[in-house]
Design a protein around this nucleic acid. Structure first.
Lengths: 219, 219
DNA sequence: ACCTGAACACCGTTCAAGT
DNA sequence: ACCTGAACACCGTTCAAGT
């Protein structure tokens, strides 16, 4: 399991160590700080590369060293931008989950909306193989989900779910989705065929949780 | 994160490399093969040490090298008994889950028995910190649970749950229990106080799953 | 068959030094 | 402040050699 020489797409790989300020294009009015035109390293660039490498080669192939290599530097340079590997993984989850769309609550069909949201998260993990594995080391998925937690809480509140139950449900639900995604990643890496009836199995788990919640909120 | 000199309990640490056949006690009739009296290394001894070290120092502190060190040999020696680290982790889970007690089905209160079984698994993981983390790399917990899966299926059958739903429920249920145990391990390793209301939170998840199952099995 | 020492090809992280 | 080379203290695994 190693990272190949990388004939990956576009821009990133063409940015060698010789990139300099003189390549600047467009207006550069008086006070534009240097960072605005793209410093060699940044948290965003590091997270970008981490996600790209996970998608291309799987979670295990991504290391501080492989990221640094692609950015044309040594591993030590990354530590000016992220504290350690754990923080990097957390930021990767944050970046991906920021794309998670949760609808405005419709009290008539809040449970369907919850089901759809959980499927949406799985879809996101499937589009970014390896990222789900980053969540396993985290104490709680919530840390990477601050942005969307409020919208999820609103959805559940529309169904009459108490704040406490809602918080616990989000915990359990995200844990379930992430676990399924991690399993799928492992199968994919072993080049095993996707488990038959995988979709039904996932739907059943979602159904268990939502039905349980509807029932418990009813009384 | 390193393994301390080990002032661990009883027998294991006193078995030095000088252990010899002459310590044999009891009858040794004609044909007893040498393995019967305890070879220096064996899968069981390796798994024993792995579990002991996880309990004492956490999952991350246990490596092929730390296990070999305690057994008075080098890491290469372990590979005569286990194929790799993944297989070792799987055997650790198998050993611990073999202690999982699942009651004979009582159709009157099958759902309570399911609840109690899930609490029983969490109790087992709590008694063996670090072991839950071994399950995360496994494709499915089932691999380490062959022994008890049949008894769980019987329990669910007594509640009128279909075989397919039962299999899926066991998957989801075990995944949930293991995830909660892993979270608790991480908190413990960070010396953080156990999350307040942790017990209630776990019970809520169990309740979601069992209520959902009862409802879905009802129709 | 079982065990070993030594090596291979890696890790994450630190640190003094440079700009 | 940001970046670097070199080093530290590890990993899992392999392999030729021993018994």
């Amino acid at each position: 399991m190693f990272v190949e020489p990388e004939q990956r797409s576009s821009t990133v790989s063409t940015l060698g160590p010789m990139r300099s300020r003189s390549f600047q294009v467009g207006p550069d009015p008086a006070g534009t700080p240097p960072e605005a035109v793209g410093p060699r390293l940044s948290v965003d660039r590091i997270v970008d590369v981490a996600i790209d490498q996970m998608r291309a080669h799987g979670y295990d192939a991504v290391t501080m060293r492989s990221i640094a290599r692609e950015l044309g530097t040594g591993p030590a340079s990354l530590y000016a931008h992220v504290a350690n590997r754990d923080e990097l993984d957390q930021r990767v989850v944050g970046r991906v989950c920021a794309q998670w769309h949760i609808p405005d609550p419709d009290p008539e069909r809040w449970d369907t909306q919850v089901r759809e949201s959980m499927i949406g998260l799985l879809t996101l993990f499937r589009a970014n193989p390896g990222v789900a594995r980053c969540t396993l080391g985290m104490v709680s998925l919530d840390a990477g989900l601050l942005q969307v937690t409020d919208r999820l809480l609103a959805l559940l509140a529309a169904g009459g779910v108490s704040d406490q139950h809602a918080a616990w449900f989000i915990d359990v639900g995200c844990l379930y989705v992430a676990s399924v995604a991690v399993e799928e990643d492992i199968w994919r890496e072993r080049a095993a065929p996707p488990r038959p009836a995988g979709e039904e199995r996932f739907a059943f788990g979602v159904e268990l949780l939502v039905t349980g919640l509807r029932e418990l909120a009813g009384d």
